[in-house]
Design a protein around this nucleic acid. Structure first.
Lengths: 181, 181
DNA sequence: AGGCTACTGAAACGTGTGTTTCAGTGAATC
DNA sequence: GATTCACTGAAACACACGTTTCAGTAGCCT
């Protein structure tokens, strides 16, 4: 019987990492096992063996992306306040090297809304919760509407940024919001 | 030679409308001609004849969705100011019956970022421009950062709303932002 | 009547998909 | 040395896809 959830196989995590890198600049939408396997030096047979199915692979890739996100969110532990948190979050998310991750994020977000079952299930809601929980920790006493607003500004701004590439305008909008707070 | 751009065929627009409705609640991601044709009382042969290719169909479906959006944006003509405009936009976009359109919108947005060529090309940037242009018309003198911020808040808020379904919290966030303006 | 054009149904084509089958490896265990 | 086990390559499987081919039908124009 193949392993399903946790596997200590070194090759497995190595392949997952390679697949993650591949997906970051090819997207998940028309991911196909044969091209993927060829690109990361493996075979469809092995991917299926290690991950059970294509859906299993996708699930783990999404979890991997979320882990990237959580790793950063977790680094903002102290009660630094909403404004400071927002500032650092924008700095992180607006960085050019984050572009592929954000693209992947939006793609997965949209897909999980259209197809609430299957491998994508719950991805959108999960990330909203992740971020809101993190903002709550940064300023526990804040009005929930305030937290929601900060999150909305950040997300709306990077939606704009990633489509237009206009870092100046979107950055100015975020800074304006921070001043208004 | 088949028609490529504009065709007055009544059957064609009728089918496009039916396909649009179908896509609104099935999504574009794994759209397939055979199931679509069966659902709207047509055949793959006819769809291909009328729209040239699947990509041609998708292009027109995206244009159709954008037309829905523009039809509303165009209705906000006067110099009503950013705040009033934002209020009405939120009212429109947060309405439950708009949910399928918004879902489709997010899906197309994400896809057009990953796959900048082909049928999805430019969709993301086009809608950002549409909304910003409309906000400019509502308050020509406003700071571009202000416009961008309003747009970000609206988009971020409905990203949240559509994932969590929490109309109260997201609505409160938008109202809070309007007060801050 | 005859040709022309717009349109459509049925079936096939070629290709790519996820997945399975089978037949092995090579190393560790008894 | 034999057996077992995790792992892998090659090939096939059944299927769905977008698209094409071919053979029409219906209506209009001269």
């Amino acid at each position: 019987m193949t392993q399903e959830t946790a596997s200590p196989s070194a090759r497995r995590t190595e392949l997952l990492e390679a697949a993650y890198r591949y997906v970051l600049d090819h997207g998940l939408a028309d991911l196909s096992l044969r091209p993927l396997a060829a690109a990361i030096g493996s075979s469809p047979r092995v991917l299926l063996f290690l991950f059970g199915s294509k859906d299993g692979l996708i699930r783990e890739l999404l979890a991997r992306a979320r882990a990237d996100e959580l790793a950063f969110l977790g680094r903002l532990d102290g009660h630094i306040g909403l404004a400071t948190a927002a500032e650092r979050l924008w700095e992180w998310i607006a960085a050019p090297e984050r572009r592929p991750l954000v693209r992947l994020w939006i793609e997965a977000y949209g897909r999980s809304l259209v197809e609430p079952d299957g491998a994508w299930a719950g991805f959108a809601k999960a990330t909203v919760d992740d971020w809101l929980a993190m903002l709550t920790e940064c300023e526990p006493g804040a009005d929930p509407a305030r937290r929601t607003l900060v999150l909305a500004v950040l997300r709306g701004a990077f939606l704009d940024l990633i489509a237009t590439g206009d870092a100046d305008r979107t950055g100015a909008a975020v800074r304006l919001h921070l001043d208004l707070l």
